[in-house]
Design a protein around this nucleic acid. Structure first.
Lengths: 235, 235, 235, 235
DNA sequence: TATGAATGAGTCTTCATTCAT
DNA sequence: CATGAATGAAGACTCATTCAT
C-alpha cells in the first residue's frame, strides 16, 4: 500500500487485498480438547471483531494519521500488542475496515432488479442508501474512503474496482434496460449515473461537517431528488 | 505547574478569522529608501505567497496531519523557521489557506444575477464552478475542507458561515424569485438547493480518487445535470 | 482552531501533589507468576528511581531550563521515551524530585522535641541539617528550590506550604515553650526564626558557588552560630 | 565563559572580564562635526544603558536560559540586531550586568570605617545592605549570582574574587581591630564572617520565593540579628 | 496467546545569531 | 550604525512497533 501518510517505519509492505489469510488452522489439530479449541477460536474472532469495531470508531473520529493504536486498543479492551497479533500494522487494520464494510453492499445493487418501473427501482435504491448506508456506520466508512482515499492510492483503487465500478455498471445495466423499455427519454443518466448518487455523497459530506449547524432531512432530499430526476423543475 | 520558563507551546489561541493583520505598512515614510522598502515588502509578500502555495500543495497531497513543515519549507524554498515568521503554527497556516482561497468566490454568487431565465443563471453558475473552482486549485481547497473538516470543527464552522450558508442563501433568493416569475413548477430546489451543487461535490471527490481509472468530463456532466434538473428524464 | 487532530501538547495540567498515583497493584492476583510480577514491579520501581536520580543530577548541574531530557535518559540508561512512561513531562519530573525529597524531613522537625534545653534542641537540629541535608543530595534539591523557585511559582508555593511554613511553625512552637520556661530572654527568635536557619542557607549557597575557592567548615560554622545565638559576641 | 547552559553555538568564547574594550574611538576623529559626534556617543551610551537595564529586568524575571534576546530588545526599544552591536552574545550581556552592578559596592565596605563601636559599624553595614542592596535592583543581581552561578563557573569566580573575598577580608579586618580593642569576646565572627551576612542572604532568597505568602520585615530582622549577634538569646 | 513496558525515529516549534538593506 | 527577516541547530514530546515475560 505504501501510504503517503506513514513515513516508512521499515515494516514490510504486502499487497493490498487479502490482508487476512484466513489463519491456516494453527496447529489446534491436535484433536484434544475440541471444545476448548472452538471456544478459543470464537474468542479470537470476537477479539478481532472488537478491534475492528474500535478501529472503525477511532479512524472515523480522527482520520487515519491521527488515530493512535493505543486508543484503538483501549477502546477494544485489549492490550496494544494484541492488535499486532491480528493485524500486521496500522495500515492493514485500516484496510481491513474499509475493505470489508462496503463490498457486501454491492451485491444488493447487482441483484437482478424487480420488474418495476425504473423510477421505483431507483427509489428503492435510495431507500437502501438511507437505511443501509446513511443510517449506519457505513456512512462513516464511505466518508473515510473519501477522506483518506487520496492518501491511499491502493485503497482508492480497491474501492473503485470493487465498489464504484461494479455499482456504476449495475446502474447502467438497469438504466439501459429502462431506456429500451422507453422509460427514459434520453441516455443522460446512462452516461452520468453519478448524477443519481450525487445527493447521497452530499448527504454524507454534509453530515460530517454541517449537521450541527443545519441538519439535513436526507430522506426528504432523496425523494425530492427523484422528483427532480424524473420530472424536472420547469413548469 | 505551568512554569514561567517554558514559553507557552500552545501560545495564545487567537480568534479564527483575520489571522493576517495586513502588516501595518511598517511606517517606512522616511521618504528615502522608498524602493528598498517596497522591495522588502514585495519580497515578503512573495515569500508568504510561496509558503502558502507550497503548503497548499503539501496539504492537498498528504492531508493536514501527514504534512511536514519541513517539506513545506523545502518546497517553498525557505528555511523551516521562516514559516513561523509568517504563521503562528501549522494550524494557522492551514487555516489561512482554507480561509482565503474560498471566501472571495461567494461574492460572485451573491452578486445580483443578470435578468435572464433561472436555467441560464444556473448554467452560468455551473460554468463558474467549472472554470473557477474545478479547474483551479480551489478544487483542492474544497477537497481539503471536506477531508479535514471533521477534524477541525472551527474550520467547518467558518466554512459553513462564510461559504456554505451564504451560497445557499443566495441560491435560495435566486430560486425564490424564479418561482415567483413562474419559472419553477414547485419549491423542491428551494428546499434543497444542495441538489444543484451535488454533482459538483461528486466531481471534486471523484477527481481526487478515481480520475486515473475513469476520467470524468465534468463540464458535460454539469450540462447533463442541468438538463435533468429542468426537464427530468421521464419521456 | 484547536483541531482535534493534534492531541494536546500541553495536555491536562493536573493538580500539584500526588503526581504518582502509586500504581494500583496491577491486579496480578492470578497467584501464578507471582515472582514475575514482583520482578516487574521491582524493575519498574528501580527504573523510576534511576530516572529520578539522573534527573536530579542533571537538574542540579544545569538547572531546569538547560537540562535535556535526552541527557537524563542517557544518564539513567533508558530511552528517551521511557521517561515519558513515568512522568508526564519535564516539569512533572522536576516537580517529583523537588517534591518528594524534602517533605519527609519536616516530619523530623515536627516530632515532639526531647525534653532538653532549647539550645541543645537547636544544636540537634543543626546536626540533622548537616547530616541529613547538607551532606546529602537534599542540599542540591534545596538549592534547586532556591534557584528555580522564582520561575515556578507553584513549586515555590508548594515548598512554602509543605516545608517552610511547617518548619517555621514547629520552630516557633519550640521556641515559645522555651521562652515560657525562661530559657530565652526575649522573643527575637520567635519573631524571626529565619535567623536560626540563615547560616544553613548560606552554607548551601556557598557550597554551590565558592567551595572550590574557599571551602567552608559547615559543622564548625553551625556550632559557632549557636554560640553566637545564645551568648552573643560582646565581651 | 563556556556556560554549561548554552550549548556551543560555535561563537568564539572570550575571556571573562573586560567584555567591553572601551570602544577604540571609532574613527570619529575626523574632527568635523564635534557636537554631532558627542551627541552620537551620548546616544550610543544611552542605548547601551537601555539594553543593560532591559536585560537586567529580563534576566531577573526569567533567569539566563529562559530570557530571550527578542524580549530584551523589545524592552530596550531597540532592534534585536542592535544588541549584537553592543555585546558579543547573550553571555557577554549577562556578564556585563552581573559584573558592573556589584563591584562598586565593595568600595563602601573597604572604605576605612568610622571610629565607632563595632556594633554600630555593623549596624551601619546592615543599613547599607537594606538601603543599597535589598531595596534596589542589586538585590536581584545578587539573586542572579546565586541562581546562575552554579552554571557559570567563571561568573562565580569573578564574583568571589571581586566581591565576596574582598568583602570578607574587609569585614575580617574590621572585626580584627574590634577584637583587639576588646569589643568582641572571642573570634567566632572573625572565623565565620558569613554569620553576619547570612540573614541578608536569607532575605534575598525569601523575597524571591515567599514574600507573597509571608512578607518579611527585613529591616526589623536585621536589627534583631544584631541584637542576637552581640547579646545572644540566653537570659 | 496476551500483555504492556521499552524503544527511538520523527516532527513541531523556539530562539540565538547573522547579514543584506 | 540600526534594522529585522532569515536561518537552522537544538530540544520536547509522540507513537508505531517490538519483545521479554
Amino acid at each position: 500500500m505504501r501510504s503517503t501518510t506513514q513515513r516508512g517505519r521499515g515494516s514490510a509492505r504486502r499487497a493490498f487485498r487479502r490482508s487476512r489469510p484466513v489463519r491456516p488452522a494453527t496447529g489446534e489439530s491436535r484433536s484434544r480438547k475440541r471444545k476448548e479449541a472452538t471456544n478459543r477460536a470464537a474468542k479470537s474472532e470476537a477479539r478481532r471483531a472488537a478491534i475492528v469495531q474500535a478501529a472503525l470508531d477511532e479512524f472515523c473520529a480522527r482520520g487515519f494519521a491521527a488515530t493512535r493504536i493505543d486508543d484503538v486498543a483501549a477502546r477494544a479492551g485489549v492490550a496494544k500488542g494484541t492488535i499486532y497479533l491480528y493485524f500486521d500494522d496500522k495500515e492493514a487494520l485500516f484496510r481491513e475496515i474499509v475493505t470489508t464494510m462496503l463490498v457486501p453492499l454491492v451485491a444488493v445493487l447487482e441483484a437482478p432488479p424487480p420488474d418495476i418501473p425504473i423510477r421505483d427501482v431507483i427509489a428503492r435504491f435510495m431507500d437502501v442508501f438511507v437505511q443501509e448506508i446513511y443510517s449506519t456506520q457505513r456512512r462513516n466508512v464511505l466518508r473515510l474512503v473519501m477522506t483518506e482515499g487520496p492518501r491511499f492510492p491502493e485503497l482508492a483503487e480497491f474501492h473503485y474496482r470493487n465498489v464504484v465500478e461494479r455499482a456504476l455498471a449495475a446502474m447502467r445495466a438497469l438504466l439501459g434496460r429502462a431506456r429500451e423499455r422507453g422509460e427514459l427519454k434520453d441516455d443522460t443518466l446512462i452516461r452520468f449515473p453519478q448524477l443519481i448518487v450525487a445527493p447521497g455523497m452530499v448527504a454524507i459530506v454534509w453530515s460530517g461537517l454541517f449537521d450541527r449547524f443545519a441538519p439535513l432531512d436526507v430522506a426528504a432530499m432523496m425523494r425530492a431528488h427523484i422528483d427532480t430526476l424524473f420530472e424536472g423543475c420547469a413548469p
